[in-house]
């Protein structure tokens, strides 16, 4: 019966008012528009990163932009080992898993299954907290190694590159004197700004998810008759994952 009514409604002219031309609710459309504007915010940061990086290609005067993956080569509980890219990949894995539990919560919401929504929301929140913890550890390690917002001690010298090339995955590695010099400042600064801004988004995503979880437990959506709020929170959460895909590509891989 509902489908028949929906079909009648669909036949009305799209742009003459009295219906939703995109066939989505007001809240969901606004979430999409917000995400579009947020995409521009992150793009401007990434564009700046690209421009800064390309303006610091090695010349007689400027030092080379460091290879990021070989700088983020630490892993918790494996002190002093050269494990480039491993920890970031684990962080990416955590975010992908929490994305899939979020989308499972949305799917459970479509079936009006309150219990399953609760279960998957808890998993998603835990994933978000795990990611934030990883990021805190990574920042602490990076700062401990000498990275600052206003200076960058990761200008790797020729000796440093030889040293990096001589160690293979899993070997013991520590910076020697003369391996590093002052490098392009935007390297560390933009790392902190962009991953910090992304981490702030993850943090607000966790807060939104906790709020939505509490609303689910209290039966707000059950009374409302639909779980669309989970979908809106989910859109935001997936967007955070989407941004991380690009941060991972441009700040760690390349």
């Amino acid at each position: 019966m509902a489908n028949q009514a929906e079909a009648t409604f669909e036949k009305q002219p799209m742009w003459s008012g009295g219906r939703s031309p995109f066939n989505v609710s007001y809240g969901k459309l606004m979430m999409w528009i917000f995400l579009l504007s947020d995409a521009f915010t992150f793009s401007s940061l990434l564009v700046q990163y690209g421009a800064q990086r390309f303006s610091n290609i090695e010349t007689a005067v400027t030092t080379q932009w460091p290879d990021p993956a070989s700088i983020f080569n630490h892993f918790p509980f494996m002190h002093g080992l050269h494990l480039p890219l491993l920890f970031v990949s684990v962080m990416t894995f955590i975010l992908i898993v929490s994305s899939v539990t979020m989308v499972l919560a949305v799917e459970a919401g479509h079936r009006n299954s309150k219990k399953e929504v609760q279960k998957y929301m808890i998993y998603t929140i835990l994933g978000g907290i795990a990611f934030l913890s990883c990021q805190a550890w990574e920042w602490a390690t990076f700062i401990h190694e000498g990275a600052r917002l206003d200076s960058n001690f990761f200008g790797i010298t020729e000796q440093g590159y030889k040293h990096l090339e001589s160690v293979s995955f899993g070997d013991h590695f520590e910076w020697q004197d003369g391996d590093r010099t002052w490098g392009p400042v935007p390297f560390a600064a933009l790392f902190f700004i962009v991953t910090g801004f992304h981490g702030f988004h993850v943090f607000s995503g966790v807060v939104i998810n906790v709020v939505v979880y509490i609303m689910t437990v209290r039966g707000v959506f059950e009374r409302r008759g639909h779980y669309e709020m989970i979908e809106k929170a989910g859109l935001y959460w997936h967007f955070v994952d989407l941004v991380w895909v690009f941060v991972f590509t441009f700040f760690y891989l390349i």
Binding site: S55, I57, T62
Partner: peptide
């Protein structure tokens, strides 16, 4: 992105 990478590269050559 394309435009600013190109410009960034040009800046690095003039530094």
């Amino acid at each position: 992105v394309m435009g600013l990478l190109y410009e960034g590269n040009a800046i690095s050559l003039m530094k």
